[in-house]
């Protein structure tokens, strides 16, 4: 009997014949992304009567290190939709380039846009051509893409929110994650936001009917409040953030918002960790 440790637990040669070592792969199995590396935290969004408000902070973390502090995680698409990315930042950049190519292809389909005459400049953003990919179409596309990648065992490590209008020009908000799971709701949040921000947003928009009563200002206020709560409670967050409002007039995106009126008084009362002596 072979008592060397290498033979432990193996079928005995004298019983089963010599083991075919060609089955042993020296290279190991093919591996793809198994964990995100540089990450963005929560993305939150809420519908209101004319559109959707979305926000995400400008931080990309490397583990617990706040590595990049000016990362724009809300990406407009065709100036009619907004896509918010949580999770791996390099996968977000890959998707951003991919969506840029998709937008170029989509423009080919509606080629021959006329240069707007200068006199139109004063008015609001020009209407997109009819039949352009809307947020619902875009979300469908992204969900197919994400599901395909997870089925290839090479997922894009992101949680994504897509906001804009659907084919009936009604506000649209939906999510898709690295598993290709899709979800739609009057308010949505990814990551920590799903625990901390979602309950707050639901107080204002529990149902589609509630959301349809919210004004733009109310929706923006709710989102700003949520961003503040997230900054208080989420250690991987930042007080600089991006805020997007998407309506039928297009996307308004501000990428250098600052949390206002913070109050850290509550921190005094937190007990149970740190250097407290009492």
């Amino acid at each position: 009997m072979d008592h060397r440790p290498q033979a432990w637990g193996r079928p005995r040669d004298d019983v089963y014949g010599a083991y075919d070592a060609s089955y042993l792969q020296t290279t190991g199995p093919k591996t793809a992304t198994q964990a995100p590396v540089v990450t963005g935290t929560s993305v939150i969004a809420i519908k209101f009567k004319d559109g959707v408000v979305m926000a995400a902070d400008n931080l990309a973390s490397y583990g617990s290190l706040a590595r990049f502090t000016d990362v724009k995680r809300l990406r407009p698409f065709l100036s009619t939709s907004i896509v918010g990315f949580g999770g791996d930042v390099s996968d977000m950049q890959f998707l951003d380039r991919h969506l840029n190519e998709l937008a170029i292809d989509e423009a080919y389909e509606h080629d021959h846009a006329e240069t707007p005459s200068p006199s139109d400049d004063s008015t609001t953003t020009t209407q997109p051509p009819r039949g352009q990919l809307n947020a619902a179409n875009l979300h469908k596309y992204l969900s197919k893409l994400m599901y395909r990648r997870r089925s290839d065992f090479d997922p894009l490590w992101n949680q994504i929110l897509v906001a804009g209008l659907d084919s009936a020009s009604k506000p649209f908000l939906a999510s898709v994650d690295l598993r290709g799971t899709t979800f739609s709701s009057p308010s949505l949040a990814t990551g920590f936001g799903a625990m901390l921000a979602q309950p707050i947003m639901r107080r204002f928009a529990a149902t589609e009917e509630d959301a349809a009563k919210l004004t733009r200002e109310q929706a923006v206020d709710v989102v700003k409040e949520c961003m503040k709560v997230l900054f208080y409670r989420d250690a991987r967050s930042l007080d600089r953030y991006s805020l997007a409002v998407v309506t039928k007039d297009g996307v308004e995106l501000r990428e250098d918002e600052q949390l206002e009126k913070q109050s850290w008084a509550f921190a005094e009362r937190i007990r149970g960790y740190g250097t407290q002596t009492v």
Partner: peptide, 12 residues
């Protein structure tokens, strides 16, 4: 229709 959830534009 499967990937975008819409009718294909006729010209395309």
């Amino acid at each position: 229709r499967l990937t975008y959830g819409r009718n294909m534009p006729v010209r395309t």
